[in-house]
Design a protein around this nucleic acid. Structure first.
Lengths: 343, 343
DNA sequence: ATAACCATTGCAAACGTTTGAAAAAATACT
DNA sequence: AGTATTTTTTCAAACGTTTGCAATGGTTAT
C-alpha cells in the first residue's frame, strides 16, 4: 500500500511532533527556525515527495498565478506563435496559462469565461469567437471588467469595448499586398475574403478596397468572394472567379490556406502563376515559403503580439495604469515570393 | 467606486442577517431552506454577480476538475485534432484542460509537471518532449504515478513506462505507405526520417525498413536522412538525395511538412512528381489535399486519439481498472493522391 | 538570584465553501 | 396548554497553508 494521498504539512508536523507553523517556516527557510530542525524537516519533506498545495495558497492569498487564454482555434499557425510569445514572457514570471479553445462558438466562449472567473484567474487573453462577434454579445465580457480582471484582446478585436488590445495592422498589410499586385501590373484583382464580421477579415477587405481606390481601380463586387479561412473553402469561389467573363489577373487570399487553395484551382486550369494570375496570401505560415510556386504573403508578428499582450497585462496589474485600456497595433510585413513576382 | 473584490457567500449572509450555511444551501437549492429565503438569496446573488469560488471548493473537496495536457508543440495539425478530441469528451464532463507547451524541452516539461501536481490536477495527458526522450529522464513522471494520478501518453510514447497510452500505429501506416510506393513500381525509395529517438520517428522508420525487406529491396543507408519535422529541414537532405549517383525514385517523408519541402526541391530540379519521383507524407494535414500535386499521405486519427485518451482517464478514475495501464494503438489510413499515383 | 534578552516554537485566525448534527422556531396534534 | 412533529436555521469543523503575536525555554549580564 503506497501513499495515495499527497502528504501535507500536517503529516510532517505529526511526524516531528511539532506544529504545522514550524514545518511551514522550516520549508520556507525562515531564519527563526532552528537550523537542525530546518534541515531535518526539509530532508524528510524531500524524501516523502512533499509538494506544496497551491490550491490552499491560492485561497489564502487570493492569488492563483493563473491566466486564461481563449482562442477560437488552435490549428492555425498564427495562434501557435501568439501562444509562444505569451509563454515566453509569462512562464518566467511564474504564471500558468490555461488555454481554452472556443471553436468559434459563443456558448463555449461564455462558458470558459465563467469557469476562468470561478477559478479566479488573474487575467484573460481573448481572441473572440466569430459567433460572439456576429451576435454582438458582450455581457460575458462585462463580467470580467466588473471584477477588474485585466482583459486583453488579441488578434481579433471587439471594437468599441473598453479593454486593452494587441492586434496586427491587417489593414496596412492588406494594402501593401494589393499595392504590390498593382505594381506588378495587375488590374483585375480579386479578393477571397475571410468570414464576415471578424475584424481581421474586415480590415483586410478595407485595405484591399482602399488600395484599389487609391490606384484608380474600380471595385468590382463580383471579384470579392467569401471563405471561412479554411483551404477547402477557397475551391468553389476560385472556380467561380476563373469562370468569369473577365477573369481576374490576381487573387488576394485572406490567409495562406485560402491562397494555397486558390493556387491549386488555378494550376488545375493550366494557368500560370504569377503570369496569368498572381497570388498573395496572409500569415507567412512556414509552408508558404515552400509551395510551388512559393507564396507571396503578409507576415504577422504573432510572437510579438503575445509578448505585447503580456506586457499590457503586467502594466495593468502592476498598477502603473490600473484600468486604462491600452491599444497597440503592430505592423505586418509583406514578403514577396514567386507567386506574385512578374517579369 | 465599484465592487472590486468578488462577492462572497459571507457578504450575502451579512446582507440577509443569516449564516453562510443558509446562503450556501439556498444557492444550491436545498429543499430544507425556506422557499422565500431561497428565492431572495438567489435573486440577490444574481444581481450582484456572485460566482462560486471554485478554489475554495477545490481545497475542500480535493477535486479541482482540472486536467493537464503537455505537448511539445502546438502548431502541428495533429496536436490540434488531439486537443479537439480531448475537449469533446472532457468539456461536457465539466473538466477544464490546462494546456502546456513544452517546446521539446525537458526542463520545461518537468516544470509543468511539478506545477500541475502542485495545482492538484486530476490527470495528465502527456506527449513527451524530444529532449526527455533523448535523455531518458523519467523521475518527473514517477512522481505522477506515485501520487496515483492518471498519466496517459498520447501520440509519443515512453516505452517501458507503466502508464496508459493512446497512440497511432505509425508502423503499419508507414508500411502501407512504402508498400504503396513499391506497388507503383518504385524501387529506390528514400526516407526523410523524423528526429531520432522519438517513437513516432522510429516506428515510421521501422515500417519503411520492414516493408522494403519484405519486398526484397535492399536497404540503402544513403537513402535515409534526418529531419526535424519542419519543412525547411527537408531542403538540404532532399538536395543531397537528388545529387546521388543513383537518384531515388520515391521519397517517403516523415510528415507532410517534410514531404512538401521535398516536393519543392524536386520541382525546382525540373523533375516530375510522381513520374520521376513519387512522394508520400504523413498526417493528412488539411493542406495536403491541395498542394500541387496533391500529396499522398497517411491520416492519423487525432480526434479519436483524444477521445480514447479521455476514455482511459475516465476508466482510471471511475475505478473499474484503477491502476491498470491500458494501451490502445489506433490504425492509420493511407490516403492516395496525385503525388504517388503513377500511370 | 533576578531581570533582560534571544532563540525557538506554538496558537489562532484567515482564505470561501460545504455539510452533519444540533438548535431553534414554527406548526400540528391531543 | 403541553407535547410531538416538522420546518428552518445555525454551529462548528474541515480542506492546507501562512503569519502576527504570544509563549516557552535557555542564556547572559547584572
Amino acid at each position: 500500500m503506497e501513499n495515495n494521498k499527497p502528504v501535507t504539512i500536517k503529516d510532517i508536523a505529526r511526524r516531528f511532533n511539532c506544529s504545522p507553523s514550524t514545518v511551514s517556516r522550516a520549508l520556507n527557510d525562515h531564519s527563526t527556525i532552528n537550523p537542525d530542525t530546518r534541515a531535518n524537516i526539509q530532508e524528510y519533506a524531500k524524501e516523502v515527495g512533499y509538494q506544496r498545495n497551491e490550491v490552499s495558497l491560492s485561497l489564502l492569498n487570493k492569488k492563483t498565478d493563473t491566466l486564461g487564454l481563449i482562442v477560437p482555434t488552435i490549428s492555425a499557425y498564427f495562434e501557435a506563435t501568439v501562444i509562444e510569445g505569451l509563454h515566453s514572457v509569462l512562464h518566467p514570471m511564474g504564471y500558468t496559462l490555461t488555454i481554452c479553445v472556443s471553436n468559434e462558438s459563443y456558448e463555449i466562449e461564455r462558458d470558459f469565461i465563467a469557469r476562468l472567473l470561478s477559478n479566479r484567474v488573474e487575467g484573460i487573453f481573448l481572441s473572440i469567437a466569430q459567433e460572439t462577434y456576429d451576435r454582438g454579445y458582450y455581457e460575458h465580457l462585462e463580467s470580467v471588467l466588473q471584477r477588474h480582471i485585466p482583459l486583453i484582446f488579441i488578434d481579433r478585436d471587439f471594437e468599441g469595448f473598453a479593454a486593452s488590445r494587441a492586434i496586427v495592422n491587417d489593414y496596412l498589410g492588406a494594402y501593401a499586398a494589393v499595392n504590390h499586385l498593382v505594381s506588378m501590373g495587375c488590374r483585375r484583382i480579386a479578393h477571397l475574403r475571410g468570414p464576415e464580421g471578424l475584424t481581421v477579415s474586415e480590415q483586410r477587405l478595407a485595405g484591399y478596397m482602399d488600395c484599389l481606390a487609391r490606384n484608380g481601380i474600380p471595385i468590382d463586387p463580383e471579384l470579392i468572394m467569401n471563405t471561412n479561412f479554411k483551404v477547402e473553402s477557397a475551391i468553389v469561389p476560385t472556380q467561380h472567379l476563373l469562370g468569369l467573363r473577365e477573369r481576374p489577373d490576381a487573387i488576394f487570399g485572406a490567409n495562406d490556406q485560402i491562397a494555397i487553395g486558390a493556387m491549386r484551382v488555378i494550376l488545375d486550369h493550366h494557368l500560370r502563376i504569377p503570369d496569368d494570375i498572381a497570388i498573395v496570401g496572409f500569415d507567412n505560415s512556414p509552408i508558404s515559403a515552400y509551395t510551388y510556386p512559393s507564396l507571396t504573403t503578409v507576415a504577422r508578428p504573432g510572437v510579438k503580439i503575445g509578448m505585447e499582450a503580456s506586457r499590457m497585462f503586467r502594466s495593468q496589474v502592476s498598477g502603473v495604469n490600473p484600468n486604462t485600456p491600452e491599444s497597440i497595433i503592430l505592423p505586418s510585413e509583406l514578403i514577396i515570393r514567386e507567386s506574385s513576382l512578374r517579369g
